[in-house]
């Protein structure tokens, strides 16, 4: 049995309106990548041009951000629930 990924409202246009999908993987990173393979139009919103998960896309395993666990390498098991949660960022054109 795969893990469940909860989809934020903003990305449901790319999952045929589904609020949750199933994906397989031994780690959180693998499950998210498998999900992106199933719904390729969502890929550009999750990953940057170099294939790295965008910094403002957060993945929660249960109630814990995987950044506080083992990141993309966080192990997941059948029945786990991953939630995609965006951090919202922006600013002026003035460079850092």
């Amino acid at each position: 049995m795969p893990v469940t990924i909860l989809i934020p409202t903003a990305l449901r246009a790319f999952t045929d309106g589904r609020s949750e999908v199933q994906a397989r993987g031994a780690t959180a990173g693998e499950a998210i990548a498998a999900f992106a393979d199933d719904y390729p139009d969502i890929r550009r919103h999750l990953y940057d041009d170099s294939g790295v998960l965008r910094s403002f896309i957060n993945v929660y395993l249960g109630e814990t951000n995987i950044k506080n666990l083992e990141g993309a390498g966080t192990p997941v098991k059948d029945g786990d629930i991953l939630m995609l949660v965006p951090a919202i960022a922006g600013g002026t054109s003035e460079a850092e």
């Binding site: 934020p8 409202t9 903003a10 990305l11 246009a13 790319f14 919103h45 403002f56 965006p86 919202i88 960022a89 922006g90 600013g91 002026t92 054109s93 003035e94």
Partner: peptide, 22 residues
Amino acid sequence: HSHPDHPAEPSDYDREHAMPFY
């Protein structure tokens, strides 16, 4: 969000960090 002393136009930084739909 506000743009202090800058126009009310999205920057490239805004675009790079934006999500669809919103």
